[in-house]
Design a protein around this nucleic acid. Structure first.
Lengths: 137, 137
DNA sequence: TGTAATCTCTATTAAATCGATAGGGTTAAT
DNA sequence: ATTAACCCTATCGATTTAATAGAGATTACA
């Protein structure tokens, strides 16, 4: 299941991208229009800023803005920051690999085999989707 | 993240399928060989039996056996029983659809759009994989 | 210069879920 | 009758998730 954090984060990024100009967008405006609890959204946008997707301006008329062009923001990167590993089990994760302690041999493990396929098909979607694709109205 | 329940369930099904004959396989044997807590595995196999994947024989020399041929057991069906909906959000689920209460218009929702693609690519894997595929050594 | 608006940061909490365990009850082979 | 196995319900501890609280720091602007 997709976490609310990821869902809200994607919606916020889309909202900002759709505005088009480079003016900062305020948390309150996003929260109101996308029906997201404002305090929760605050922490999510903070994460996205610290990860290099968003810039911010403090104080009056402050807000968040995109640092890169929407076409250059890949879903692989966004998803890894918001949701964590794309693989459903650590033993098939490209970026967060960990062996299973209960599995003596990955080569013959049926779960491993299946989850590699799921990982690859999901990666294929995320690698071919940018924020620009999400932002088409 | 894949739940342990699903992971253990898939491993158990594979174990039974790999044995080949139609003799009942005991919980204890599977638990030992696959390093699964026996009591936990009991409840999982019970679920799989009630869902029509496994049959059981009670009493001495009892155990679980496949009801259908491995080639006829699709991952779509197994995953829905063990893990639940394949879609990551209810608003793109084919079998468990529910609208988002915070989303006024699915047609323009970026999360909806992305998650439909992920669902379809994952479904494509599960629809084309059977227990027989998992059981190849 | 002061005030209001806005992002920043840490801490906390309530609820839900997950993984595992406990402890019998029921059934069938021998 | 005994034993080995599945059947069933209940519970528990740990973790994660979603949300909230509240104070701090910064900026625009009158």
């Amino acid at each position: 299941m997709l976490s609310k954090k990821t869902k809200y984060g994607l919606k916020a990024l889309t909202y900002i991208a759709r505005k088009g100009d480079n003016e900062p967008v305020q948390i309150g405006e996003i929260a109101k229009n996308e029906h997201i609890p404002q305090k929760f959204l605050e922490s999510i946008l903070l994460t996205l800023r610290k990860s290099g997707f968003l810039g911010s301006r403090k104080g009056k008329h402050g807000g968040y803005y995109l640092i890169k062009k929407p076409e250059d923001i890949l879903m692989t990167d966004v998803m890894r920051i918001l949701e964590g590993p794309i693989a459903l089990v650590p033993c098939v994760s490209l970026n967060f690999y960990e062996p299973c302690n209960d599995c003596p041999d990955e080569a013959t493990c049926s779960v491993n085999r299946l989850m590699i396929q799921v990982r690859d098909s999901t990666l294929n979607v995320f690698r071919n989707t940018t924020l620009a694709d999400l932002s088409v109205k």
